[in-house]
């Protein structure tokens, strides 16, 4: 349905349909974020032998996040007197807008995708880099040393880990011969890339956790060192926007890992009668759980360890993977 819409001629009605779809999608993502936060708190609670939220909304705390969001919206919106006012207001928007832009390109099933871009993978990585500008802007505009340190760390981390992230997917691009996410999924009919590219998967997983600024790489908002990191001075819905951007990226990155390595909507053999959307949701949930598991399990790394690990371990491993993949591909083609 959406494919037909994408190729139809532009008109005001089309604009309206797209606007409506985007709004619906935004609410779907907001729903995901609401329950991802709850799931994260519950899983963390169980892993740490606690209960997690269990008061608001029944014994599973189903309305806990809703109540939290309501609280955030009702909070006083404080802007420090010495902050740089225009940038302080602009920064959360710069941080959030790319987060929502990247999810447009992710194919959820073979028919449900908002933008079938030829260079979809590159688009995702490129646009997601813009968020860091919002973070650095906000951290500078707050006029606070802790937030500035957090912003600096965010920038350094983004630059260092974007390179292994891109390098690790090059192996996949070599094998599938395309940057288009649909074609990458189609190329996994014979075997998911997690099996064909295990090294790339590990490098990508580590680099993506670092790009998401989640533990063990949550240095930009390390509570024990930087109070709250780049959003120390933010409160109310502006703070909520930063958090929202973070969780939308969580959604987008889990979807991207599903698409790149776990075969997207493709079923396991002999289980083709289950619809693709269910498969996508299942794989997606596994990735989300894995990322939450990481957060509970690993201690935070130090800033210098982070840089060393990125440049001295991940980057060479990713480069070696490209070399190995190209070599294997040529050898297999030769025989």
């Amino acid at each position: 349905m959406i494919q037909d819409l994408l190729y139809s001629s532009p008109s005001l009605a089309n604009f309206g349909i797209f606007f409506l779809l985007a709004t619906v999608f935004l609410f779907v993502i907001l729903g995901f974020v609401t329950y991802a936060i709850l799931a994260e708190r519950k899983v963390m609670g169980f892993m740490q032998l606690r209960h997690g939220p269990n008061q608001v909304g029944g014994r599973w705390g189903l309305l806990q996040t809703v109540a939290d969001v309501l609280k955030l919206l009702l909070k006083e919106d404080t802007i420090p007197k010495l902050a740089d006012r225009p940038l302080f207001i602009l920064a959360p928007a710069i941080a959030f807008a790319p987060a929502f832009m990247v999810v447009a390109t992710i194919p959820f099933t073979d028919s449900l995708q908002f933008a079938d871009i030829g260079v979809g993978l590159l688009y995702y990585i490129a646009v997601s880099g813009l968020t860091t500008i919002g973070i650095v802007t906000g951290s500078w505009a707050s006029n606070n040393k802790y937030s500035l340190l957090g912003g600096m760390r965010a920038a350094a981390q983004m630059i260092s880990y974007e390179i292994p992230l891109v390098m690790s997917v090059l192996g996949i691009i070599l094998l599938s011969g395309s940057l288009n996410l649909n074609e990458i999924v189609e190329a996994q009919k014979d075997g998911w890339f997690i099996i064909l590219q295990p090294i790339a998967f590990i490098v990508f997983l580590i680099a993506s956790v670092a790009e998401l600024n989640r533990a063990p790489f949550d240095l930009p908002e390390a509570e024990s060192e930087l109070v709250a990191g780049f959003h120390v001075e933010y409160s109310g819905f502006r703070w909520a926007f930063f958090m929202l951007a973070e969780y939308v990226y969580f959604f987008a990155m889990a979807s991207l890992i599903t698409v790149l390595f776990l075969g997207g909507w493709l079923p396991l053999p002999f289980l083709g009668f289950i619809p693709g959307a269910v498969w996508f949701a299942l794989k997606f949930s596994v990735v989300v759980f894995l990322l939450i598991w990481f957060r509970v399990t690993f201690p935070r790394v130090r800033a210098d360890q982070l840089m060393e690990f990125g440049w001295k371990v991940l980057l060479p491993v990713a480069l070696a993977n490209i070399f190995l993949t190209a070599l294997l591909k040529e050898l297999l083609n030769a025989f």
């Binding site: 990585i125 490129a126 500008i133 630059i159």
Partner: peptide, 15 residues
């Protein structure tokens, strides 16, 4: 895509 990919990093550094 490359324009944004390169410049988002470059601009962050300039900043």
């Amino acid at each position: 895509a490359v324009q944004i990919l390169i410049y988002s990093g470059a601009i962050t550094i300039i900043m």
